[in-house]
């Protein structure tokens, strides 16, 4: 049935002739943009050079990266980003990226055709939380952190693994976040959570506070720890109890949880009992590696892991070695 709002055929045919002349698309070429992309992207290494179409290429957006001193691999600085990075390696049979060398200069032009780790601001995500998974080109989809977590949770083997991962994402995550928010220096925090912090001294404090407030919202941390959130938000206004009194129980819980995981692992290389690490291994290793990336003076948990729980440090090294 014809609608009254439907444009009559002859009229439509007439207007369809416009524009009378169509030129090719305006070039978007910008050397500065290409340079920035190359500087902030780290391509995953593939065992065999796969022929991918532009729509099959993905990128993982993370806060920042650090070079692992032992393996030379580029690792994300945040546990959730690192877990997503390791999981993508496992699922797609990829190897971790290395810091770019001179020989890689020539490959840079093709980098948009290979999966990569992309250092972006938290503002690249609509919910201000990383990681994000950037899929496809013409059929673009940017998956949020929640979307990535949902997919990765579905890959866990059983309910027991899900329970362990949930434990890590609550007890150990809270400890990591508390440490980042309350213990780390401003410079170290910015190094972990922003690739291009504002270099104006006058604004750096305000910028740092904005980042901290965004991190408070991730994984509902602020709902679970109201007192710490108030302390972080209104540090100068709100007279909370001594910060140490607030954070100490979280650190103790985290240490207990890590001890239990070390005991659970026993003498096995991986939890899965196989040659290849499972998702639980990746999850635990990502937290442990992030703690270990900090100095002993910066983090009491890093000191604890190095001095008391060697098994987990060895386990995380084994995970990295697998994807090296």
């Amino acid at each position: 049935m014809r609608s009254i709002l439907q444009v009559p055929g002859p009229v439509k045919a007439f207007f369809d002739q416009f524009p009378l002349q169509t030129y090719p698309a305006v070039s978007k070429k910008d050397d500065a943009s290409v340079y920035e992309y190359n500087a902030q992207s780290y391509g995953f290494r593939e065992q065999e050079a796969a022929q991918r179409s532009a729509n099959d290429v993905f990128k993982l957006g993370v806060y920042n990266v650090v070079e692992d001193p032992e393996s030379g691999c580029v690792l994300a600085t945040d546990p959730w980003c690192l877990y997503a990075q390791l999981s993508l390696c496992k699922k797609n049979g990829l190897k971790l990226a290395h810091k770019k060398g001179a020989q890689q200069q020539q490959q840079r032009q093709q980098q948009r055709q290979q999966p990569a780790l992309l250092v972006v601001s938290r503002l690249a995500a609509s919910d201000k939380s990383l990681p994000i998974l950037i899929e496809g080109c013409s059929k673009r989809n940017v998956r949020s952190t929640a979307g990535i977590n949902e997919i990765l949770s579905s890959r866990l083997r059983d309910a027991e693994e899900l329970m362990y991962v949930s434990l890590l994402d609550s007890v150990v995550y809270d400890c990591w976040t508390t440490q980042a928010l309350c213990e780390l220096s401003v410079a170290k925090f910015l190094e972990l959570y922003d690739c291009a912090p504002i270099d104006v001294a006058l604004l750096q404090r305000a910028f740092y506070q904005t980042l901290r407030e965004d991190l408070l919202e991730r994984n509902d941390f602020s709902l679970r720890h109201l007192e710490i959130s108030r302390h972080v938000r209104y540090m100068h206004l709100y007279q909370s109890r001594n910060a140490h009194q607030l954070t100490a129980p979280l650190f103790e819980s985290c240490k207990a949880a890590l001890d239990r995981f070390a005991a659970l692992l026993g003498s096995r290389t991986f939890f899965s009992g196989e040659m290849e690490p499972g998702y639980l291994d990746l999850k635990l290793a990502s937290y442990v590696l992030c703690f270990l990336s900090l100095d002993d003076q910066e983090s009491s948990l890093a000191r604890y892991l190095r001095q008391e729980v060697h098994a987990l440090a060895i386990h995380s090294r084994a995970v990295i070695a697998h994807f090296k």
């Binding site: 943009s33 992309y37 957006g61 972006v120 601001s121 503002l123 690249a124 609509s126 950037i134």
Partner: peptide, 14 residues
């Protein structure tokens, strides 16, 4: 947007 281009994602920030 959930369809942001690379250029825009790299531009995001402070």
């Amino acid at each position: 947007s959930t369809h942001s281009s690379d250029s825009l994602l790299l531009l995001a920030g402070d």
